[in-house]
């Protein structure tokens, strides 16, 4: 698909801005996303092509304004709902429960 993920040759994306002594993960939630993705990928819930395509379908503005591990999170939520492991309603309910607990 002619998505915004297909970045080669585009202009206007800004400076590269490498971070000195960058840590492997920047936050605990990135670790959790990485763990959940490798565990579900390694368990055969989806393959690399489904993985990439789910990220391509996340919407152009959303893709460009979110980080790599947010792309991964979107992917694993989408594919685990599509394969019937969980439902969107279950996810929404669990998020609401956790938000309430944290409030």
């Amino acid at each position: 698909m002619n998505g915004v993920h297909d970045l080669g040759g585009m202009h206007g994306m800004g400076p590269i801005d490498p971070e000195a002594n960058e840590p492997v993960f920047h936050d605990e939630w990135e670790r959790r996303v990485f763990g959940v993705v490798i565990a579900t990928f390694g368990g055969g819930n989806y393959d690399v092509d489904q993985f990439r395509h789910a990220i391509e379908l996340m919407g152009a503005a959303n893709y460009l304004s979110t980080s790599y591990y947010e792309h991964w999170l979107h992917m694993v939520e989408t594919l685990m709902v599509e394969n019937g492991t969980i439902t969107r309603d279950e996810l929404d309910a669990e998020q609401a429960k956790l938000a309430k607990e944290a409030a």
Binding site: M1, N2, D6, G8, G9, D49, R52, H53, E56
Partner: peptide, 12 residues
């Protein structure tokens, strides 16, 4: 080609 689905062929 401009497939609407997944491809690993970049536009460039």
């Amino acid at each position: 080609i401009n497939p609407p689905g997944h491809t690993r062929m970049p536009r460039y």
